[in-house]
Design a protein around this nucleic acid. Structure first.
Length: 741
DNA sequence: CATCCTCCCTTTTAGACAGCATGTC
DNA sequence: CTAAAAGGGAGGATG
């Protein structure tokens, strides 16, 4: 189908597509149009990665907007929201407006309501529905990207429930669900009353194969020699081979440590092939990486990048990840070893993909469990860069002939699994039942069951009664904890229940926080509050390592009076969780005691990304706790607020006032404080020479800070830094001054 | 005597959404 | 129901 034949789309679109080099639609795109994508028909597109899914969404969205509607594009990751926004911004030249809404980045609320296309994460959409964002009712087209994630036990139910709510709220809503190739796309189509486009077509050929011995065995039956030298690992040989061919390699491994070790080794095999130009550019990327964070992880990454390799996992700060992704896309990095973060994340295609480890540790399975076919296919799908490579190649590695056969049977010749709704699980229903009642989608048990009947779970289940059973259990839980009131058959959310739903808290987290704050007899300490929020189900747990049990049991005894609520006995099952929450709490306390990032990441064996994640979550939960305390009229709200401010800025109590000034963070606040400037009032009246000295002679910074604190004459012209204060706290943070000793 | 290599035993293990109100070094 | 790699330490070989 030629782009000129499109009907229903805005007039400018065919020309725009031609400008972008699109003349003919890909077969799955044409199928989608024939199924009515541009006429407002709902659609499930189950197609491989990189086969033009985004264009299907764009056709549907622009057509819908042209009819006067509004489109919403739901993504599973914040990083993807940014990527999609950039893509859709191409439409702004035709007068369309694009907005983004995620937890950490929001377009202006009022402006969002006027946008034609809005990009948001599924949780954010859920939250917007709960909080009654007015534009939700005006939607005409909703795109759900990576909809196969409804299979995910944690986050799948949110997407599922949100889609059901949007459809109930907007009769006639067009739903475009984009999925990876899965075993049962027809059930998704049945659920969404949608047409199905099920295709395995790819614009670039993908050749899958298994490497064994000295050869690659491809799925078409061909073999190709690929020599592995003595003392060399298969992965190294493949990377070398790809590089000789002018391509780069993406290697998937099963742990962070393996990713880092592989990057170190593989950087060694590519570093001699770099041009001087590449070396220079890589050195500047490495410098940016070191700038992001002063930790061992950051340093290891930078030194690998200098040699043309990198690793990628969730322990990296998001800036780290972006730098690696960018340098890999620019073909500067010749090899990246990654955990599954990269398979599901932003678009990072590669000439060749190696799935080195096909088993991964799983606590539930009690050992190494094989990756799902879907997951391996997603990794393989990263092979082949559109427009750059003639084809992509994805290789698994076998160490024995038996394994060679097994890998072919398991992954190459096998279709991906069917997806299955995970809605009938307690945590999911506990949260979504409350939200459904609180935001007015149901007001009785029957109403709830009727609503739940609109979900994928209901479409899919053959096991009648299970959903109803769990629903009743969770209604009891919500009633006992005072989130819901039952009057005969009627259900209403209490005011506490409304607050919890709007704060986007798991009701169990809210119950834990409320209980902890209510039973506190004295003003809770920061550690006590950090521990309280760390043991809620909304905080991801730190792993207890050998030796940690004893260490934190001792800490629990030493600081027992600070810890809120009932301490479980060491023989209870939840003791482990309670201890690991204590470990998290002490990490947060270290952060809020101005310990350096590098010392913390070292002490707890975490990456900078983990630390920032924990701090972020704690900040969110403490602000929710503050609201709950206010709601219930509890007296400890100020203590909660103080803990929140401390963890948000990473400061001790005495810096709270100073850190409230824009442009002053944990480092500057500490230096000002050491120079005798302890409050904002001090700062307003301070000797400029002292301020300038404390801020290391940075005139521009000093002027900004003084301006922000409301000083009328912030100019630093003619002021000389007071040298006596400039030395304070120096050495660790400013490398340029190290040499003076 | 220092350094390197090898072998064996122990340790460890993926990912990441949300509120609210504005900005680190 | 299930594993594998890295890192550290001991002990031996090498220079």
């Amino acid at each position: 189908m030629n782009v000129t034949e499109l009907s229903g789309v805005p007039d400018w679109l065919p020309d725009h597509l031609r400008d972008e080099g699109v003349e003919e639609l890909y077969p799955p795109q044409a199928e989608a149009v024939e199924a009515g994508a541009t006429e407002g028909e709902s659609l499930v597109a189950s197609v491989p990665t990189a086969s033009g899914k985004t264009l299907i969404a764009e056709l549907a969205m622009t057509a819908s907007v042209a009819r006067g509607g509004t489109a919403l594009y739901i993504v599973p990751l914040r990083a993807l929201a940014g990527e999609k926004r950039t893509e859709f911004e191409a439409f702004e030249q035709y007068g369309l407006t694009v907005g983004v809404s995620t937890g950490n980045y929001d377009s202006d609320g009022e402006w969002l309501a006027t946008c034609d296309i809005i990009v948001a994460t599924s949780e954010k959409v859920d939250s917007l529905v709960r909080n009654g964002a007015p534009w939700i009712d005006d939607l005409s087209c909703v795109v759900a990207d990576e909809v196969h994630l409804v299979d995910d036990g944690n986050r799948g139910p949110t997407l599922e429930v949100t889609l059901a709510k949007l459809r109930q709220r907007n009769p006639g809503l067009q739903v475009v669900a984009l999925s990876a190739t899965i075993g049962n796309p027809e059930i998704l189509a049945e659920w969404l009353d949608a047409e199905l486009v099920d295709s395995t077509w790819r614009p670039i050929d993908l050749k899958k194969g298994v490497h064994y011995g000295q050869a690659v065995h491809l799925e078409d039956g061909n073999q190709r020699e690929l020599q592995v030298r003595d003392g060399e690992k298969a992965t190294e040989a493949i990377v070398r081979d790809t590089l000789n061919d002018g391509g780069s390699t993406l290697v998937f491994v099963n742990s962070r440590r393996n990713a880092e070790a592989a990057a170190r080794r593989l950087a060694g095999t590519v570093e001699n092939e770099l041009t001087n130009e590449e070396r220079t550019q890589l050195a500047s990327v490495a410098a940016e990486i070191r700038d992001v964070s002063d930790t061992e992880t950051s340093e290891d990454l930078a030194s690998a990048v200098e040699r043309g390799g990198a690793f990628h996992h969730a322990g990296l700060a998001s800036e780290h990840r972006e730098l690696v992704e960018g340098a890999f896309r620019d073909r500067l990095l010749k090899v990246v070893s990654a955990t599954p973060t990269l398979a599901a994340g932003v678009n990072t295609p590669s000439r060749r993909v190696v799935v080195r480890d096909w088993r991964r540790y799983s606590g539930e399975a009690g050992g190494m469990a094989p990756l799902s076919v879907l997951e391996v296919h997603q990794m393989c799908g990263r092979a082949g860069r559109p427009g750059l490579d003639p084809y992509g190649e994805a290789l698994l590695l076998a160490k024995s002939h038996d394994e060679l056969d097994e890998l072919f049977d398991r992954y190459i010749w096998t279709d991906p699994e069917a997806v299955r709704s995970k809605l009938a699980a307690e945590p999911a229903l506990r949260t979504h039942l409350l939200a459904t009642v609180a935001s007015g989608f149901a007001s009785s048990r029957e109403g709830l069951l009727e609503f739940l009947d609109q979900t994928l779970y209901a479409t899919q289940t053959t096991e009648g009664g299970r959903l109803e059973r769990v629903t009743d259990d969770m209604l009891d839980y919500l009633e006992v904890n005072d989130f819901l009131e039952r009057d005969g058959d009627d259900l209403t959310a209490t005011s506490l229940g409304h607050t919890v739903s709007r704060l986007y808290l798991d009701p169990m987290s809210a119950a834990e926080i409320v209980d902890g704050l209510q039973t506190a007899e004295d003003r809770p300490s920061a550690l006590g509050l950090f521990h309280l929020v760390s043991r809620t189900p909304d905080m991801y747990e730190l792993y207890l390592r050998s030796g940690d049990r004893e260490e934190y049991t001792m800490l629990a005894n030493e600081r027992e009076t600070e810890l809120l609520g009932m301490k479980p006995s060491e023989f209870e099952a939840r003791w482990e969780d309670w201890l690991s929450a204590l470990k998290t709490a002490r990490l947060l306390e270290d952060w809020a005691s101005e310990l350096d990032e590098s010392e913390i990441t070292d002490r707890y064996s975490v990456g900078p990304g983990d630390l920032r994640g924990k701090v972020d979550t704690a900040e969110w939960l403490l602000s929710a706790a503050e609201r709950l305390a206010g709601e219930l009229g509890l007296e400890w709200a100020p203590a909660v607020r103080e803990a929140r401010t401390r963890v948000a800025n990473g400061i001790r109590t005495e810096l709270i006032d100073l850190a409230g000034v824009r442009g002053v963070g944990r480092k500057r606040a500490r230096r000002l404080y050491e120079a005798g400037i302890e409050t904002r009032t001090d700062l307003r009246n301070a000797d400029k020479a002292v301020v300038l000295g404390a801020l290391r002679g940075r005139r521009k910074t000093a002027e900004n800070v003084l301006d922000n604190v409301g000083r009328t004459d912030p100019s630093m012209a003619d002021v000389e830094a007071d040298g006596s204060v400039a030395v304070v706290g120096e050495g660790e943070n400013d490398q340029s001054n190290l040499g003076e000793f």
